[in-house]
Structure formats: structure tokens, C-alpha cells
Nucleic acid binder design. Sequence first.
RNA 1: GCCCGGGUGGCGGAAUUGGUAGACGCAAGGGACUUAAAAUCCCUCGGUCGCAAGGCCGUGCCGGUUCGAUUCCGGCCCCGGGCACCA
Length: 823
Amino acid sequence: MEEKYSPKNIENKWQTKWDKEKSFKVSEDPSLKKYYLLEMFPYPSGRIHMGHVRNYSIGDVIGRFKRMQGFNVLHPMGWDAFGMPAENAAIQHKTHPAKWTKENIDYMRGQLKRMGFSYDWDRELATCDVSYYKWEQRIFIEMYKKGLAYKKSSFVNWCPSCETVLANEQVEEGCCWRCDSVVEQKELEQWFFKITEYADELLEYTEKLPGWPERVMVMQRNWIGKSYGCEIDFPLEKGNGAIKVFTTRQDTVFGATFMSLAAEHPLATTLVTDENCKNVDEFIKKVKSTDKARRTADDFEKEGVFTGSYAINPATGLKIPVYLANFVLMDYGTGAVMAVPTHDQRDFEFAKKYNLSLTVVIQPEGKALDSAFMKEAYTEPGVLVNSGEFDGLESTLAKEKIADWLQKNGKGKKTINYRLRDWGISRQRYWGDPIPIIYCEKCGAVPVPEKDLPVLLPMDVEFTGEGGSPLAKVESFVNVTCPLCNSPARRETDTMDTFVESSWYFMRYCSPDYTDAPLDKKRVQYWMSVDQYIGGIEHAVMHLLYARFFTKVLRDLGYVDVDEPFTNLLTQGMVIKDGSKMSKSKGNVVDPNFLIDKYGADTARLFSLFAAPPEKDLDWNDQGVEGSSRFLNRFWKLVYESLRFMKTGEKLDTSAITEEGKILRRQVHKTIKKVTEDIDSRFHFNTAIAAIMELMNSVQLFAAKNRPENRAVLKEALESILLMLYPFVPHFSEELWEELGHGGGIEKAGWPKWDSSATVDEELIVVVQVNGKLRGKVVVAADAGEEDVKNAAFGDEKIQGAVDGKTPKKVIYVPGKLLNIVV
RNA sequence: GCCCGGGUGGCGGAAUUGGUAGACGCAAGGGACUUAAAAUCCCUCGGUCGCAAGGCCGUGCCGGUUCGAUUCCGGCCCCGGGCACCA
């Protein structure tokens, strides 16, 4: 055994062994309890960063711990490999996205292996491989046939100079992130997944996932945004039509004195009268050229324009003007609002600006509002007035009554509205999964027949960064014949959002090599659901909601039997340095390669787990890493020195050990208990490591005395520490385990169990308070009763001084812990 | 504006069910070893008063409940995050 700990050789040795022997390869075994452990797979951006190190270190601790406990642990890794950075790199470096991505994957795989993570590499997948994305096309077609994938036109961010759609994230202060042109709203035909069909079930399950952090559930609930209200028809003054509105405040319908439509509302252009034509046109143009970010800013001025037309308030029968307003959103509700200026702040401001009439219909208890003197809208509950037969009703009650009345008289109906919108998946990008649809002039949109799948992404493509999607310019790809009528037809050139790939990869891992279907139901059945999922909080809504949606869709398509993909979710915090998130632009990144070279992977892992509990942000500190490194060096030295006089095979004889030995054993077994509980039920790795450090400090003192009769105790202590350290620092522990004379690998030894009898204290320290203030401690026998503790306390000189001859009014005794004397 | 987190030494953090506040680690100071440095080892380390024993104060602020509050309740301040003309 080397005298000094040198991580390089050791880590290399064990990594080679794990790789060669496929140590973490698993298969379905019904006789074993399965545990599916998953960390969010990375985008192959080039190299791993500290966020990955942290995420995967957390996962690896759980994986190795569960394996030691005898679970059949599925722990896969793969690559979320489609996406824009590859395309941008292709443009910049004159390379191909496929080449760039593959090189990155190869490099990053090497980095993950150097960290010693225990993955079943035989299950590795990359979403840009045909063997993956072709199945997604099949799922798409099955969704299309069920009406879960459909096409509709919608408004999107459009950069006129790049000729492409931009995601909301790519619009910076109203301008294109790449060329700085002003971004417009453009109406385009887009593919959607009908996630709204599952809105209720998705919402319902946010109450049934006890293993998820409450804040993630809250964020998803807010995102789905279910609200109960009414759809009410406001007949047009002229003609037969009506304007449909959605409202949650049907109790105020008698106060609706005008209407506001979104600029994109289909009626906006048909309702306009000749004399208002010019104003309305200008207004619509202005709204459409304003990007969403600016439109929704705090200080954005409410503006509108009169169409010249009128509608009839179905409650009052009065004629009310129809306006277009810039704050009404086409994609929420019906895109039209009944405006009640007295009880809605936006309508109030709008009415004041355009001099529209106000009618109070809700009076606060004990007050009388006068619309002439109102400074702001009154939005609280109250009692109805000016509301015909509903006058005098309390407003919450009136909500019900008016909804019933509207429904009965055919003026409207009760309805539920969601904030959640269908998921737009079309991207005018090359590096993604082609949407398997063909457009025929006669037959319309035709799904690519199964025998023609997959639609391969063509490789001979030029990347200029100009003129829209590169895919649309590949003639051989675009020009096809219709599968139904054989006429010339065009292929869809949009690709799917990369979030589609990450919505089902965790199921593909269960049968990654299956060639008959996306999933092998039997194998998926064994592994699903994921027992523990780990990843960043930034995915709280998008990815985690899409994945839940997809699981339900695949269930309904007959592929799986589970309702929810992830039983338990752990959202880890960010890695912070010098007060801000590590990022290239801030110049505060720490390169994992540098850490591995300088300290070894084990030290890097240990520190990232020790510095903070997983769900909190981790403050990176270079000197803190030194501390973790020091700990491993000290422990190495301790084992090295102990080995010189320790015999292998020495049996522990508990009757022969000294008092000191007993005390150390007690700490060993208490530590095993604490570390087990910290890892298993709390994921508090930082306190688990702290407890091991404490134990090592004691062992060090103990070993220094070198009493021959205590050697078996020392051996037990050292081995226990190694077993407990293994999930954190696997190479280090494997190496020393072998040095201590064990073959066959440390995992086989199993997770240590604590001996309850060894943890029992012989003496107890009971804290003594006088009037709730700490005044002393007494040592009593472990089996001492309340009387014994009282006697000891009152016999104590310090306590006597504190009591100062006064008569105790009350004495509170917390068994084995505390005695409080109240005087 | 609404909804979540969070606020503890010089720093990261601990205190799991209302019961010893500050575990463990970092930094700092002092010492040992060394020609010297690094490494390593030992001691001190919330504030304050005191020669000491010991006392008093202290978990963002104010108040409450309790024998006892970092922990529970009410009100406020600050920081971080999410959502947001959502009708």
C-alpha cells in the first residue's frame, strides 16, 4: 500500500475495471426489488460543468447506496442531442450539427467516466439517433390519429430578417437576439399537442404526488391555472352574431357597459364601420408589431379604439359599444372581455380614458359607492345593486344564481377555463425530429405511412444562417408524392420541439434496444415509474409538465400502465460562486477537469455533496475543496498506519474490549444509524459526511493509543467508515477496502447495519435548567428515573446556587434529556 | 400586484417532534516540527464584562403563546425565485 493517497492511479484503476466488467449493467429480475434512479440527461454542449457534477454526484450517491442495500438499480445516462446550439455551431464553424454533437458526446462521456459515475452504459441513447427519433415519429402519428396532435394557425414571434420563428426566450427587448431586428407577431400554421385535454388530470395529480416538492406542484398548478366562470353571449346590435366572452365575474354582468376585443379577434375587422376603418387598421398594426414582453410590461399604457359597432348586454338589454383594447389577449378565454369598469381596474382605467359610462352593481357592506366619485374599481365581494331580480344578493352567492339564470335563458353557460395552452411543437429548424406529415393539394395533411417511417433527416445540408429553415431548401426532402393519391406533394419541413424528446426518454431507457416499437411493454412495466428523479428547478414547469403529459398519452396509447412518470423528485440548487451563478459571461466557472487533475474525482464529488444540502444553492469555495481533500488524505494515512499492526481475520470479541473500545463502538454504531437515515430519508448528504468526519476524528485519537486488545474495534470502525464513504468516494473506498484484505468489491459487502445494543448509552447527560435557563448538567446512569435525576440536580452545587434557596414551583422532566426547575 | 422559498458566527452550514444554539468544514490568530517554505500536528475562535470562577446579551425587527421558542402564532422589514394586463 502506498503511504500517500494518490487519486490518479486509483481512479483510473477502478474506472477501467467498472468499464471492462460492466459493473453497473442491469436487467429485469423479478426476484429483486427494482429501483429506477434517474438524473436529467444533459445537452451535449461541449463539456460538463459544475452543475452536472453536482447533479450526477447526488444521483450516484443514491445509486451506489441503493445497490449496497440490495436493490436492482437502473441508472442510465444519455444525451438530449437535438437543438439549436448545434445548428449555430454549424453556421459558425462550418461544420455539421451531427458531427459537432457526436464529438461533444464523446468528449463528455469521457468526462462522466472520469467522475466515476455508476451508469449502465449499455443503455446509453442520443435523441438525435434515428433509432430514437423514428419512434417519436410513430408516437406523433398515433397522437395525430387520436386528435392529440393537430395543426392550427397561431401568432408567433417572427424575425423578418432571419425569416424564422423565434421562441419567447430568443426575443430580447422586442428585438431578435441574433440580428437585432424588431420582432413581429405573425400568424402561422403550427403543429400542436393537445395537452389541454389532460389539464384536469395533470392538475388532479398535483395533489397525489407526495414525493414531489410542494413548490414545484404549486408552480404547475399556477401554470395550468384552472378558473371557474361563465361563457356569456353578447348579441350584436346588427345582424345575428354574438360576441362570446369568458368571465369569472358573472355576478357583475349587469355592470358591463362596453366590450373589449383583442386586436387579433376575428370580429375585429368585420365589426368595424367605414368611418372607423382607418383608426382601427392603425391600431391593429401597432398592437401586432409590439412584442409580448413590452405589451405586458408594468407601465404599458392601456389603449383602445372604437369599432363603431354595438352589442347588447344580455342582462340589461342595453346597447353597449364594442372596442378593441391592447390589453386583451387572444389566447386566453375567448379573446373578448365584457368590460365592467366599476369592478375591474383595467376596465376602470380604460373607461376613464375614453369617457365610457360606469354602473355600480356591487356595494361594499355598509357603504355606498357613487360611480361619479370612484377613484378605482371596487373588486371585493359585496351586495348586488342595479341588477334586477338579483338586487340584495351577496356577490359570491350571486355568482351561482346568475350562472344558473344565464344558462336557463340560453344567454350563456357555466364553463371552466385554463391558463394552460396547447403545446406548440413546430420549429423552423433543421436539427430536430422531422414532423412526419406530407401535404397534398387534394388530400391535405397526410401522415407518413408506417412503412415509410422513419422520415430521415437529410445530411447533405448547407448552413448559412440565412433564409429560414435549411430543411426547406433540400429539394429531395421536400418534394414527394402523396401516399394516398400519388400526386406531387410537399413534405412538412418543420421539426419538433426538443422538449418532445425529453418527454419520454426515461421510458426508452427501459428497453433502449427494442426494435419492434417505441417501448417494450414488459420491460417498461418492470422499471417504471422512476423511483427518484433528480434535476434542476428550472425545469419545474416545462419539462416536468410535458413528461407527465406524455406519460399519460403513452398510457392511453397502450404503451405503459403508469399514470405518472416520476414518483419522487429532487430539485437540486444552482452552483454559485462569488455571489452569482457560474457562467462563462461572469467568468466565475470552475472547470471539473481542473478539479479532477488537481484533487481527483472523489474529492470533487465529496465537496459538492458536503458544502450544502442538495436542494439548496451551493456556494463554491476553492478552499473548501482543500478541506475535503485533507479529510481523504488523513483517512488514507490512518488506514495506512493501522494496517501495519492489524491482522486480517481478527474477530471482534465484545466481552474483551476496554471501556474506550466500548465508547468508540457506540459512536461507530450511532454514526451508521445517523448516516443511513440521513441518506435514505432526507438526502442530507452534508450532515451524513459531517458525521463520518466526526467519527474519523475519534478513531484517529483512538488509534493513536494503539492498545492491542482494541484492534478488532479499530478494524470494525475503519471498515464501517469505508462502507459509509463508498457512495460518496467510490474509488477511494474500493481501493482501501481491497487493501484491508477484502476481495470481490465493496458493494458486495452491503450497507452496514447498526447494532442497537451497541448504541445504548451507559450514562446520560441531563441538562438542568432553572427557569428555562441552562444552569448545569448532571451525569446519571442510563436507567435513572426522574427521582434520581432530581436528586442529582438538587445535589449539584451549581444548581443549588442558581436555585438560591427558593422553593421550586414546578419541575419539568424530559426523560433522559432535560430537567427544568421553575422557582 | 399575486404565489412560493429564505434570513443563524468572518464564511458554507448544523440543531430531524418546542428541550444544551453554532455540529462538521473553511478562513483567521497562536504554537510545534523545519536552515526556510510547503505539508502535517496541537491550541484558541459569536459578542460583551471579568484576573478567574462565572455573569449578561445573542438565530432579520416588534409583540404573543409556553416552564422553555432558531422552531409555533400575529404584525413588519429585507433577500431570492416563479407567475402576471388571465377577464
